[in-house]
């Protein structure tokens, strides 16, 4: 029996894996990939809610799927800009190790 709980726990686990990658990797592209995992985890959670509340009072509750579409849009924009920034940084400093890009370190 698959309930809403199953999808929420799946989303939580995926989010934590992505967060671990985003916090612990040194390669900027790897951090970006981890952020994509986190966004996908949130999308799975939202679509799970949308599917669980389908057929309630206001017709079908598809708001979760609408939110997922907007998240996918913003994630695509974010990936394009971030990869362009990574390539620009690599061109100037010939590294994408975030341990060496430490201008804003305190």
């Amino acid at each position: 029996m698959v309930t809403l709980n199953s999808f929420l726990v799946l989303g939580a686990i995926l989010f934590c894996i992505g967060l671990f990658g985003a916090l612990s990797k040194r390669n900027a592209v790897a951090i970006l990939m981890s952020i994509e995992i986190m966004l996908n985890a949130v999308n799975i959670t939202l679509v799970g809610y949308s599917s669980a509340f389908m057929g309630h009072t206001h017709g079908e509750r598809l708001t979760g799927q609408i939110f997922a579409i907007f998240i996918i849009t913003v994630a695509a924009a974010e990936a394009a800009v971030a990869l362009a920034m990574i390539i620009a940084i690599y061109r100037r400093r010939s590294t994408i190790d975030i341990g060496e890009i430490n201008l804003m370190r305190w």
């Binding site: 029996m1 698959v2 809403l4 999808f7 599917s51 669980a52 057929g55």
Partner: peptide, 12 residues
């Protein structure tokens, strides 16, 4: 919220 809705079966 979760206890109220968690065991609502998802429409697979």
């Amino acid at each position: 919220m979760a206890v109220a809705s968690a065991f609502a079966p998802v429409h697979l």
